[in-house]
């Protein structure tokens, strides 16, 4: 049973909805096969910010790539606004932010942001303006003509986020985008990301192994267990928005992270037992 909202609701609600139904992914490794994900079913509402957390090897990055239609599932379906994921990708519904910033080093910052628009045949005039607007949004207006190699890790991530938003995606997919940043920069980027997400009114799916980050950003956190990757818990984060860094010190924030960390830990133990 797939609940597709009527098209007319899209004008009122931002973002796109995602429906994942009994999704499984098995990789063929020659003699062996590896089941990365099994029996994943979930619904994401328009405009929701949803996070997947889990230990490394739980298939959370694979799940994100399945949602983006970059790989085909072994079983089950992914539907985005009622269409299959590959079709949604062809219609450029996704913005994807990778673990690395993956900026093309021979293009300047603004040229990197313009690249998706070149691929989408956006007229030149419009391209420049849109790229400038997005640079403004991520706070890098003065860095348009700079080479990516000159940027710090945090700045490179901002450019990557700007690039992912340039074709007005209805869904933003984030694959541990701040994983390699230091803690202070990471927190600052989280505040930025929340602001950008609120401004763009898109649906966001974040993959992370950082519980605090997941709680800070999300409306809902989904915990994945390892081998095979499966949903072991789900928690609604009812903290008011916009969230501030001060909130991290509050008991209600701590309660969320404590609960989720507990589940993660028990999931890891179960995973270890089933391994033996």
């Amino acid at each position: 049973m797939i609940s597709t909202p009527a098209p007319l609701s899209q004008s009122e609600t931002a973002g796109g909805a995602i429906t994942v139904d009994s999704l499984g992914m098995t990789f063929d490794l020659g003699k062996q096969s590896l089941t990365a994900l099994a029996g994943i079913s979930l619904e994401m509402k328009h405009g929701e910010f949803c996070s997947f957390i889990g230990p490394s090897g739980c298939g959370k990055s694979t799940l994100l790539r399945l949602i983006a239609g970059l790989i085909e599932p072994s079983v089950g379906t992914v539907r985005v606004d009622g269409e299959d994921a590959a079709t949604a990708r062809q219609k450029r519904k996704f913005g994807f932010v990778f673990q690395d910033a993956v900026l093309l080093p021979w293009r300047t910052v603004i040229e990197n942001i313009e690249l998706p628009m070149i691929v989408a045949h956006v007229p030149k005039q419009e391209r420049r303006q849109k790229a400038k607007d997005l640079l403004d949004l991520v706070g890098l207006a003065d860095f348009a003509q700079v080479a990516p190699a000159k940027l710090s890790g945090g700045m490179a991530r901002r450019v990557a986020i700007a690039r992912s938003l340039v074709l007005d995606p209805s869904i933003l997919l984030l694959d541990e985008p701040f994983g390699s940043l230091d803690e202070i920069t990471r927190q600052r980027m989280n505040v930025e990301l929340q602001r950008i997400w609120a401004a763009e009114r898109c649906t966001a799916v974040l993959v992370t192994h950082n519980v605090g980050e997941a709680v800070f950003l999300s409306d809902r956190v989904i915990v994945l267990g390892a081998r095979p990757g499966r949903i072991i818990a789900e928690r609604i984060i009812d903290l008011p928005r916009p969230r501030t860094l001060e909130m991290i010190g509050e008991p209600r924030f701590f309660e969320h992270t404590r609960q989720l960390s507990g589940v993660l830990l028990s999931g890891a133990v179960v995973g270890a037992e089933s391994d033996a």
Partner: peptide, 22 residues
């Protein structure tokens, strides 16, 4: 870089564009 290729794939870039641009 695999991520660079995926970045192009996400925006639906055709084979020739990926080759020439990346």
């Amino acid at each position: 870089d695999r991520q660079a290729l995926e970045m192009m794939e996400v925006i639906g870039a055709p084979f020739m564009t990926v080759s020439v641009r990346v």
